[in-house]
Nucleic acid binder design. Structure first.
Lengths: 135, 135
DNA sequence: CCTGTTATATCGTGATGCGACATAACGAGT
DNA sequence: ACTCGTTATGTCGCATCACGATATAACAGG
């Protein structure tokens, strides 16, 4: 299997792109932890809030959105429920499924978190666009 | 502390952006593991290769690039050295520092890995650009 | 030489996602 | 209505990985 030419520039761009992603992930983790959330717990809340026209997601849908196994999603949701950030209710249409909804407290957290993330993303957008252009 | 208005669109875009990043991370992890590397080991190799005009990086520089503590970098490098992918040599200018260089085997791995990553990034670039535009 | 600082290395620990397994509910076919 | 295969959620023990704490060695300035 032969691979096309890769210039030093290509490696440099790839490395810089990954570094930028890591910096964003570190920013996000710091913001989440400052509010008592693990990064993945934050992503659960965002996944629910960010699904348009749906007030709730099932455990499996959350797992699919986070790209984790369902049992990992269960544990995340357990801890969020303990913290009073989500509520579980059986889906009346399919009693196997548990629908997870945000509490008011979670909505509040998400306003602050999402505003901070939007600000950060707008700040780094030029750099990301420049890197993407270079690929 | 008051936060500016956030529309449902904002949350949707943020969630979609994070989902896209996770999908890329999953792709990258899959490619790395298929070649016997952990995702972080791949990032060590890429950091060295992607630093222009430098054939080697010190342990501390690698840690800074990966945003991990130096002791974590040491462990990553230990395993890469055991696998024959990097070599350590003390910096003659400063014998506290260990300079980490890639072996030919690592260079080979990186060609294939980086080509795959470039392909994937070019494939998802339109989606990423669209999401960034929406922020 | 001291002495404070920096760079790397070692070791034990805590968190997190996973595999394996279990239970319950659905639905198609008979 | 009953079986049977499938799907959804939940439980448990384990492996991995990054970290904090600590140790050692080498530098730099006085």
């Amino acid at each position: 299997m032969h691979h096309p030419d890769l210039s030093d520039q290509d490696y440099e761009t790839l490395a810089a792109f990954r570094h930028a992603l890591r910096r964003f992930a570190a920013f996000s983790e710091s913001e989440a932890k400052a509010r008592g959330l693990t990064p993945q717990q934050h992503q659960v809340l965002l996944a629910i809030k960010g699904t348009p026209g749906r007030p709730a997601l099932s455990v499996g849908e959350i797992a699919a959105h986070l790209l984790v196994r369902h049992n990992s999603a269960v544990e995340l949701i357990d801890r969020l429920a303990d913290a009073g950030l989500v509520m579980r209710a059986p889906d009346p249409q399919d009693r196997r499924r548990m629908l997870v909804t945000l509490t008011g407290q979670a909505e509040h957290l998400l306003v602050a978190l999402s505003a901070a993330h939007l600000r950060e993303l707008r700040a780094i957008r030029p750099a990301l666009l420049s890197l993407l252009r270079r690929l």
